[in-house]
Design a protein around this nucleic acid. Structure first.
Length: 505
RNA sequence: GAGUCGUUAGCUCAGUCGGUAGAGCAACGCCCUUUUAAGGCGUGGGUCCUGGGUUCGAGUCCCAGACGACUCACCA
């Protein structure tokens, strides 16, 4: 009895029957098309036969997924989608013949078919392909959660977040927003790449597996290198290798790559994310600011056609704000209070923030920045002059002991980039690393490891260099307005679900 | 790591006071040659997340667990 068979069984039976009829859906390799669904609709006047013209003079062909299917005895309508747009197709038994009609009756929503015919307008005025012949291009063995829609409203569909993340292909088929996020991300990355290429930057690739994961403060993932019998770490930043390339007299380099930080997950943090870093010899942090401004102006214009986005104007220079000045303006805590650890802790206490566990002046200053200043940085703003202790790779500011030539960029209250004039004094860099090693010994698991290979490169001589890093995921979130980082990651990490788990043992 | 909420048909969801499970769509069968949330008639479909407990009886109440969502914490 048909009731005992699953949808998949029934589809397998249809597949077998199609093969008997000589219409094996999986034997076809290619299908030539007149154009996309969108272009067929847009070029309707040009492609459709005029009154009195022979219909067969204007054949068009189109391949897509069946997303709706209305069978009416001896005629039928279906909508075919290429993912981007859909177009209606009209089928008649008397024109297809018995065999092809039977094959059509074995079609399901979800199948891919390729049709040939002519464009016409239905009674209700919809641009439609009058199909004279068609072939199966694939058969779907699963029911797809394709909702029905009318006048912009959609019924049913796929809304469960877990299912959307676990089975992203369904999300892409069913939800246009998911598709738009994917397209936006791709276009943004492409525009970023072109921005640097146009300015003479060389794109490079550096190792993901490293003996010491440096360049940032974060806990790494570990894995094992069988060939060398070595435990290695997945990179947490791109920085040190890129600067070793600068030491090799390649003056402008950039990399867009995955980095991995073995840390918490939130709506803005994913352990695996994409980082953009670039370095330019003979440039400093002011040059990096101009690059950031130029990058945002260029990418917004190219991808969205406007530099005005979310009420922000990326055509204007960003605000520039000294870090200590910003803290004083927002919290009342003065620079002199932040000159030593004891008075800084008292200041923390005064403003009601936890202070007992603080033993790092730089850490306190950054905490104050986060708490008092960051939420107010809605318009694009560079905060300049970060503490020495938390900036082990940035040049000292000669004008201000204890601080570095480093800035971070903020938009809509969120950190978007981190840049500095790079340390090129190998002795200074060694001292900073040693301070980090001491921090680590004191229990800071995220303190920077000492990297002798990097120091060796610096000792060979590195020109003055400016460098900057931007989280691509943050950038995409900002520009698309995505509220969760998982919306702009195609396949976020999910714990195995019960249905995905094999036999329990 | 903490809190809150959730998990019922392929999808979206109901399920009252504890009494052996419901709708729409999807599926299956029949009818239907311009439909479009096509329509008409009919049919089938459930490990109610898992495991315990209370009870004559649990989708419902209790305990534990899994997974997820959101918020917070963590996070250069």
């Amino acid at each position: 009895m048909s009731e005992d068979r699953s949808v998949r069984d029934l589809r397998l039976e249809k597949l077998a029957r199609l093969r008997e009829l000589g219409h094996d859906p999986f034997s076809v390799e290619r299908f030539s098309q007149t154009g996309s669904a969108r272009s067929l609709l847009e070029r309707f006047e040009e492609l459709a036969p005029k009154d009195g013209q022979d219909l067969s003079d204007h054949p068009i062909s189109f391949g897509g997924r069946v997303v709706s299917y209305r069978l009416m005895g001896k005629a039928a309508f279906a909508h075919l989608s290429d993912g981007d747009e859909k177009i209606q197709a009209y089928f008649r038994k008397d024109e297809l013949g018995d065999t092809l009609w039977e094959a059509f009756n074995l079609a399901d929503i979800g199948d891919h078919i390729g049709v040939t015919g002519t464009l016409f307008l239905t009674k209700t005025g919809e641009k439609t392909i009058h199909v004279t012949s068609f072939q199966f291009l694939s058969k779907s063995l699963q029911t797809l959660p394709l909702g029905k829609e009318k006048e912009g409203q959609t019924w049913y569909g796929l809304t469960d977040t877990e299912q959307r993340y676990r089975h992203r292909h369904l999300d892409l088929i069913v939800n246009h927003e998911a598709r738009n996020m994917l397209l936006s991300r791709s276009r943004i990355v492409s525009a970023v790449r072109r921005f640097f290429e146009d300015r003479g930057y060389l794109e490079v690739e550096t190792p993901l597996l490293q003996l010491e994961a440096g360049g940032a403060a974060a806990r790494p993932f570990s894995t094992h290198y069988n060939a060398y019998k070595l435990d290695v770490k997945l990179r947490i930043s791109l920085e040190l290798y890129l600067k070793r390339i600068i030491c090799g007299d390649v003056p402008k380099v950039f990399e867009i790559g995955r980095v991995f930080r073995n840390e918490g997950v939130s709506n803005r943090h994913n352990p695996e994310f994409t980082l953009l870093e670039w370095y330019e010899a003979y440039a400093n942090l002011e040059d990096m600011m101009e690059m950031v401004e130029g990058l945002f102006a260029d990418v917004t214009q190219k991808v969205f056609g406007s530099q005005q986005l979310h009420g922000l104007d990326f055509g204007k220079p960003w605000h520039r704000l000294d870090l200590l000045t910003a803290i004083e303006e927002r919290s009342g805590i003065t620079a002199s209070e932040l000159r030593d650890l004891d008075s800084a802790k008292k200041a923390l206490q005064r403003v009601g923030l936890p202070h007992e566990k603080e033993n790092n002046l730089g850490g306190i200053i950054e905490k104050l920045l986060e708490h008092f200043v960051e939420p107010h940085l809605q318009e694009p703003t560079f905060i300049v002059g970060y503490p020495l202790e938390t900036s082990p790779l940035a040049k000292k500011d000669p004008a201000r002991p204890g601080f570095t030539r480093r800035f971070e960029g903020y938009v809509l209250g969120r950190e978007i980039c981190n840049a500095f004039s790079e340390i090129n004094d190998p002795l200074d860099q060694r001292e900073r690393f040693e301070a980090q090693v001491a921090e680590r010994a004191a229990g800071d698991e995220e303190a920077h490891p000492l990297d002798e290979d990097f120091l060796f490169a610096l000792e060979g001589g590195m020109p003055p260099t400016g460098g900057c890093g931007i989280g691509i995921d943050r950038l995409v979130m900002l520009l698309t307005g995505a509220q969760h980082v998982r919306e702009i990651l195609l396949f976020p990490m999910m714990k195995p679900s019960k249905e995905g788990t094999s036999q329990p043992d």
